[in-house]
Design a protein around this nucleic acid. Sequence first.
DNA 1: GGCCGTCGAACTGCATGCAATTGAGGCGCT
DNA 2: AGCGCCTCAATTGCATGCAGTTCGACGGCC
Lengths: 252, 252
Amino acid sequence: MAPRSASKSAVPSDKVGVICRALRRAIIEQALEPGAKLPEDSLGERFGVSRTIARHALGQLAAEGLVELRRNRIAVVATPSWQEARDAFDIRIELERLVVRQLAGKLTKSQVAELNAHVDAEDRARDGSDAVSIRLATEFHILLANMTNSPILVRYVSEVAYRCCLTLSLYSRPHSSECAINEHRAIIAALVKGDEAKVMSLMHSHLDSVASRALVAPAPQRGRDLLDILAPYAEEGDGGRVVKLPKVVRAR
Amino acid sequence: MAPRSASKSAVPSDKVGVICRALRRAIIEQALEPGAKLPEDSLGERFGVSRTIARHALGQLAAEGLVELRRNRIAVVATPSWQEARDAFDIRIELERLVVRQLAGKLTKSQVAELNAHVDAEDRARDGSDAVSIRLATEFHILLANMTNSPILVRYVSEVAYRCCLTLSLYSRPHSSECAINEHRAIIAALVKGDEAKVMSLMHSHLDSVASRALVAPAPQRGRDLLDILAPYAEEGDGGRVVKLPKVVRAR
DNA sequence: GGCCGTCGAACTGCATGCAATTGAGGCGCT
DNA sequence: AGCGCCTCAATTGCATGCAGTTCGACGGCC
């Protein structure tokens, strides 16, 4: 509906931007799981562009921390460690507190309407797939950030929110985020009321509860597969090599 | 001295990384002023690589907000608006409060030594060029962030610090940041002492004072040239065109 | 003299080609 | 059967070439 063509910067042409957006979305909807391979050829073919462009897009996404690039290796969707996930949430909390601090009491009527409409959409999607719910929940926060009119803040909040989303698919059990919709409504209400302190603490506890519900301890059994579990034991120094393991069948 | 090869991610090969680091440094030392042109050819030639690589590097820097990319146009060093500068500082304050909160009372002896050595270097550079002083001051903060061992936090703090650095060359009068060295020492002391609240407020006021010393109001006369002054009046929508002005001699 | 239109050089957007590296399967050896 | 080596297809790293666009300058016209 809204003609939100989003980020004006960092998008050399727009083909790159299209691919980035598509991949971001696929990643946060968990159509692409962490660790999924992203060969340049395939991407290029899929989007009707050459490898050059696909490569460029991967570079951008790597800069955002959504994909991992290793020299001469196929790019893969990032697999953040549990600690990184925690860090991302900590940063996110601070950034979003900043967002609501700037927004408290300053929302226009149409902005409030837009926010409410979004939460309604979240409500409606409750029966649908988890993926959509998660995406909408994330987009609520990005929508909020957008209203600050601070491009930098928007960029950082978006990035870190996407990263958090990514970690959710790694470490959370299903259906863990739906109950947060009420908290979104509460935040809107507090924003309208203009109570800065209140809305900041609401946002804080909202994110904190999402984080603690989602990030269920380092859970030995929760990792994707053997390789992930062993990762911390094979600290990869700047050129280090993972210890050779006898016969590991990589989970496809 | 320290074998700090820095960011492992987001660097496809390393030629790209080399170019990025070089340009970042040139930018924050103000060898490249905001608005400076960065043609792909020249960069490629300068660094002994093809345009492809130079282009990729520019893409990365654009993602960090240090350069501006516009379709079919020569890339230029970013020229943040005054408002963006303010926003960047606000974000920076929150992020660095997070840094020192995590670090308070947790520094090892060698880390403290490293910090002190750095501030000593800042002291020594006081007689040298402004550019070096500014770079060192910025690097102090990045050094601090590094000690959190949180790659994400490091990345964000670095980025936003570079951006702030960039704005300093636009909006600040010369010699405005040197007196901050004592504040760096105070922060180290408070970190060692482990007083979380104290160090957070120290960092807050440190950055706040740098910002307010530096960002001297929108100052009609302080902008680079006429075009910058007029920029806010010619909001560029996603494909909008700046209003045609009769005969503007662009300050070289 | 100043303004406008036209032209050319410069630059970007993108695809493709070639060399180098990887990792995966097959083969032989123990 | 298991383990290691070796070879080859798959994939990346990078440069170059071509087409389209922009910017600046020159020259004509008012």
